[in-house]
Simulated scan of single mutants.
Amino acid sequence: MASLAWLLIPLFAAIGAAIWGSWAARDRTQGDISELAGYARFREAMDRSDRSESRAPAARATAHSGSDAV
Rank of each mutant, 00 (worst) to 15 (best):
S22C: 08
S3Y: 07
A56S: 05
G31C: 03
I15H: 02
G66S: 12
I19V: 05
A13P: 05
T29G: 14
E35R: 10
A56Q: 05
R28T: 00
S52C: 08
A24Y: 14
L36V: 04
S3P: 04
L36D: 12
D32N: 13
A40C: 07
D47Y: 11
L36N: 12
D32A: 14
F12P: 00
L7A: 15
T62P: 01
L11K: 00
G38A: 07
A5H: 05
A56G: 07
I15C: 02
A40V: 13
Y39L: 13
A37Q: 09
D27P: 07
I19E: 01
D47N: 10
R28A: 09
E53I: 04
L4I: 15
L7I: 15
D47G: 11
A58Q: 09
S65V: 06
A14G: 04
R48V: 03
A58R: 03
R41Q: 15
A59H: 13
I15K: 05
R41I: 15
W20H: 01
A13D: 02
A13Y: 01
G66E: 11
Y39D: 12
F42P: 07
A18P: 04
S3Q: 12
D32M: 12
H64C: 05
Q30T: 10
A18Y: 02
W20K: 00
D27C: 05
S54F: 10
F12Y: 04
A59D: 04
Q30N: 12
D50Q: 06
A24S: 04
L8T: 07
G21S: 11
Y39S: 12
W23S: 02
I9W: 15
Y39Q: 11
W23N: 00
R41M: 12
H64E: 13
G66W: 07
R51W: 11
Y39N: 10
S54A: 14
S3F: 06
Y39A: 12
E44W: 04
F42I: 11
I19T: 00
E53H: 11
G66I: 13
I19Y: 00
L8Y: 13
R60V: 03
A25W: 04
A40S: 12
S52N: 11
I33F: 10
A17F: 01
G66K: 08
A63P: 02
L11T: 01
T29E: 14
R26V: 09
A13E: 02
P57N: 03
A17Q: 02
S49A: 15
A56N: 03
R28W: 02
A61G: 01
D50S: 08
I9T: 07
E44T: 11
S52M: 09
I9M: 15
